[in-house]
């Protein structure tokens, strides 16, 4: 870890200005990912701007019937927020499937979607990694790539995005509100994270001078029919090998709208509109789910150690859809559960 200067921003404007003034500056909020990366010399900011005093912690109703999540609201406060739990249980479940209680108490919503990959090679400066050091190569391609991408990867990077929350946000079609020197803009969630292409060092489309101020959830929350299914190597405190956020609108047995987002399989939360369209207007049958799953995995490509994710992903999609259909309308009282059992 290197030496750095530290300031505490009191207004959004000064925070943005401060960030723009130093080339290697970083915002810090919960610090649950950044400080880890600084300790292993993967991140080396020379200036840290603590934004925790900014008034971005609130969760408020939007005029369109949606909900605005402050960028600095903690993951725990968000997941346990009455409106989130009631109207967006998919999001609450996804958040609670991630990390540990301690981490969720510190981690913020803005930071969550900005967290960096858990690729072993990204974390180890003794190895080649284009994301950490552009042009150095990708050790994961020919290394131990069990946890790596099967969709949307490139020859430069096969890392995956580690967030659970982001998978639910992708399914919910959230919008990310940001502020920069050029003013405010709103980024649709599907455009927020990038695929690696030939620039894997860029995780997302946020500009260097921009800061996330909030995340907007549209009115539609799929509270009646949804599932967040996370498959991993242990029951808690492990990143997803494959996760599925599913949301359905149903009319009787007919699916009127389907959202399926996958985690653990790509550099960004993975959506496939064609697959979702395949389900629209169809009945909720195993056969139809199978078609959708096959469509999502149609172009999946495995590497030496992770080909299992293709079949696992298909089965996870089918199970998640099945759970979303069958879920009872009773409010969930056990958000602490993160296992694969039907909720």
């Amino acid at each position: 870890m290197n030496s750095f200067t530290y300031t505490r921003a009191t207004t959004l404007e000064t925070a943005v200005q401060d960030k723009a003034s130093a080339e290697l500056a970083k915002f810090i909020a919960g610090g649950t990912n950044l400080t880890d990366l600084m300790k292993v010399n993967v991140e080396g900011p020379n200036h840290l701007i603590d934004i925790r005093q900014l008034a971005l912690k609130d969760i408020t109703d939007n005029a369109d019937g949606g909900l605005r999540l402050g960028a600095l609201a903690t993951n725990a406060d968000t997941a346990y927020h009455e409106q989130v739990a009631k109207r967006y249980p998919l999001l609450a479940k996804a958040i609670l499937a991630g990390a540990s209680a301690q981490l969720r108490n510190m981690a913020t919503n803005g930071g969550n979607i900005l967290q960096r990959t858990r690729c072993y090679y990204f974390y180890d400066t003794a190895t080649a990694c284009n994301k950490r050091e552009p042009g150095s190569g990708c050790a994961a391609l020919s290394g131990f790539n069990r946890i790596h991408a099967i969709l949307g990867a490139s020859e430069h990077c096969i890392a995956v995005h580690p967030s659970d929350m982001a998978i639910a946000l992708a399914a919910l079609e959230a919008n990310v509100n940001v502020t920069g020197q050029q003013g405010n803009r709103t980024i649709p969630f599907s455009d927020f994270h990038r695929l690696p292409g030939d620039a894997p060092h860029l995780d997302n489309t946020l500009q260097p001078d921009e800061i996330i101020t909030s995340i907007d959830l549209p009115a539609k929350g799929f509270a009646q029919h949804h599932a967040y299914l996370k498959l991993r190597d242990r029951e808690s405190y492990a990143f997803a090998l494959v996760s599925v956020a599913a949301g359905l609108e149903m009319d009787g047995d007919t699916i009127t709208e389907a959202r399926i987002a996958l985690g653990g399989v790509a550099h960004k939360p993975w959506r496939n509109r064609e697959a979702e369209d395949l389900l629209t207007g169809k009945s909720a049958t195993e056969e139809n789910f199978k078609l959708a799953a096959a469509e999502i995995m149609r172009e999946a490509k495995g590497y030496e150690h992770n080909s299992f994710k293709i079949e696992l992903g298909k089965r996870a999609i089918m199970r998640a859809l099945e759970q979303a259909v069958k879920m009872s309308n009773k409010p969930d009282s056990h958000f602490h559960r993160t296992s694969t059992e039907p909720v």
Partner: peptide, 11 residues
């Protein structure tokens, strides 16, 4: 897990 390229425990 040993990464065989580097001969190094990687996790």
């Amino acid at each position: 897990v040993i990464d065989q390229q580097y001969g190094r425990f990687i996790n």
